[in-house]
Simulated assay, not measured.
Amino acid sequence: MNLVLFAVVVTLVLFFWIAKRQSADPYGEFHLAFNKLPTDKVEAAPRTEWLNMGYWKDTDVFPEACEALALKLVQASGCKPGGQVLDVGHGSGESLILLLTHPSMARPSQLTGITSLAAHHQRSQARVARLDQPVPVFLHAGDAVYRPGSHGHPLDPSSEDQFDTILALDCAYHFRSRTAFLRQAYGKLRPGGCVALADICFTPGALQTRWTRWVTAVLRLMPRENMVSTDEYLAQMRGMGYTVRLEDVTSDVFPGFIRFLGTRGLGWKTFGGLMGVFAGAGARFVVVVGTKE
């Protein structure tokens, strides 16, 4: 490694460390500040609790962009009225509330959710309980991927639960692993059901470069096994039995999210800069729908 490249690497690592330090939140609630609007009173809690990168095509407001990405995912899934829906990685519950209350949503007959942070699980339970709506909701705390001993896990192959739609909004690239999750999801879908993901993969060939692998490792966005190209992503799902379609929405996600982070102080601005490098290194934000025939 030459001295110039070494300096760049050290600088990026230092900036990333600063960003992580400034944005650290041991309670997993940093996103609440992101949801605050300029018109909100300082002491007031935000009206929404979104936690995704957003779909910025027609807005520059964080909660509006996040809702737009959630709506795009649900609409892509073709969610039908009266279906049984599993929302994986729902954070502190905003996507659950959208499925239960948004006027454009087809109401499920049953809604199940799972999220990995206990604090988010508890917060989601409290928020859903306050809603005046008739749909039964079952929430679980745990990893997205079922492992033996995970009592009550919605993807437990020994349970009789089945789903018409499984949603993973901006989270599946974190799973260990995404392929394990997709295989388990396939086993729990009814015929004609689908899994829909707002996810990150890479342009074909991008992962051949050390630079792309290094930037991804620095950002700590995903384990190595989830780093696949768009072509590999589609091939993996087809190999599991899915009929698949993929839409690349990178241009309506990364630039707007990076601009927003630039307004949130030095730490988040630095992280946004690294996200720009990540996109430039071949990362793609995609909406993927896999149907079980």
Rank of each mutant, 00 (worst) to 15 (best):
Q110K: 15
V10H: 10
L234A: 03
T270A: 11
V277D: 05
T101L: 04
F16S: 10
P154C: 03
A33V: 05
G78F: 10
V128F: 07
R245E: 12
P63K: 12
K41F: 00
V288I: 12
A196I: 02
A45Q: 09
H90Q: 06
D231S: 05
L182G: 01
C194Y: 05
L86C: 11
R176Y: 05
V215M: 10
P204L: 01
R284N: 08
G192T: 08
E64D: 13
P46Q: 09
C194F: 01
C171W: 07
P26F: 02
R130C: 00
V85E: 09
P191L: 10
E64A: 14
I114F: 03
A144M: 02
S23Q: 14
H174D: 03
I258V: 12
V195E: 07
L51M: 15
I97F: 02
Q162F: 14
S77R: 15
T48F: 03
T11C: 13
A279D: 06
P204Y: 02
L69V: 03
S23T: 14
P103M: 09
E247N: 12
V137Q: 09
R176W: 03
V8C: 03
Q22R: 06
D87W: 08
A144F: 01
Q22P: 12
L169K: 10
S251W: 15
I200M: 04
M237V: 00
Q125Y: 00
D199S: 01
K41Y: 02
R220C: 06
R178C: 06
